[in-house]
Design a protein around this nucleic acid. Structure first.
Lengths: 150, 150
DNA sequence: TAAATTTTGTTGCATTTACAGCAATAATAA
DNA sequence: TTATTATTGCTGTAAATGCAACAAAATTTA
């Protein structure tokens, strides 16, 4: 049942492509929406954790976040008890953008699930979550330089 | 059940990241494996269709394929009855690489599906296929410049 | 048939992505 | 406490990505 992962890849690329095209309206360039929604939903998150959450390289996240800050969508705040970390928060501008992002996501979701029942959607979600958790472990390991053998 | 699409994104990015790291061994850079496996499995496909299949921009596909050709993994052959199109085929070098790509994919698959039964995997596949078909239509439309309203 | 449109392939350019490698702080071990 | 290791953030560089815009062939329409 190898094709599962290909379906996932196709869906993800198509959705990402659609979002990127649509969010140009908000002056958001490729990928930025991913970070913005998560910062809104997890105020105070640090960029290292955000990269892990999104499953993207640390340095890619660093630059995407840097740009969001320059554009005024988010701000970095120093932590009082830990000089190393910077906590991320959406600004007013970022908060204003969120409903737009949310609505787009909801729309994509309803298109994606057309003809699929509530129960099926729930099953799909549960299964995907299990797959994600399985892959997550592998990703962490490979990213740290470990070699898989097979 | 909005989170379905996020799970898909996380899984796809993690898997792509793993593949890209592992295929450096074969001198394949980011994303090239996607094209190479499909050309192997669909000899004679043209790049326009390949881009649609993978769900990637036409020009991105064009350059990835160009590079695969320069590296000798694939070759482009003119079509006799249609001067515009170029048919893609794997070379010996490409054919030799395929089993490696296949094995990696199979391994990722088995890791991804750890703890998931045959029946569940089949259900997951069927559901994902339906989601993909739904999204595919939307992607084609947005890529052509159509605006969705919601 | 001729004109208009679509399909297919390219290149220029700006941007994102990610690997290396660095620095500074924090956490852990000796 | 001091030394070692891990975490967090950053920049340089090389490469992929994707939009705009073009050209040429094929297909559709008038």
């Amino acid at each position: 049942m190898r094709e599962i992962l290909r379906e996932v890849g196709m869906i993800a690329r198509a959705l990402d492509s659609i979002s990127n095209i649509e969010f140009k309206e908000l002056e958001l360039t490729k990928g930025q929406y991913l970070y913005l929604v998560r910062i809104f939903e997890h105020p105070g998150i640090i960029q290292e954790k955000l990269a892990e959450m999104i499953k993207v390289d640390r340095t890619t996240a660093a630059r995407a976040i840097q740009k969001l800050e320059i554009q005024g969508f988010i701000e970095k705040k120093d932590d009082e008890s830990n000089k190393k970390i910077k906590r991320l928060f959406t600004t007013e501008k970022g908060k204003l953008a969120y409903p737009f992002l949310k609505r787009e996501g909801d729309h994509s979701n309803s298109v994606a699930l057309a003809g699929i029942t509530e129960e099926e959607a729930e099953t799909l979600f549960q299964l995907l979550q299990r797959v994600r958790k399985n892959i997550e472990v592998e990703w962490d390991s490979v990213k740290k330089g470990n070699k898989r053998d097979y």
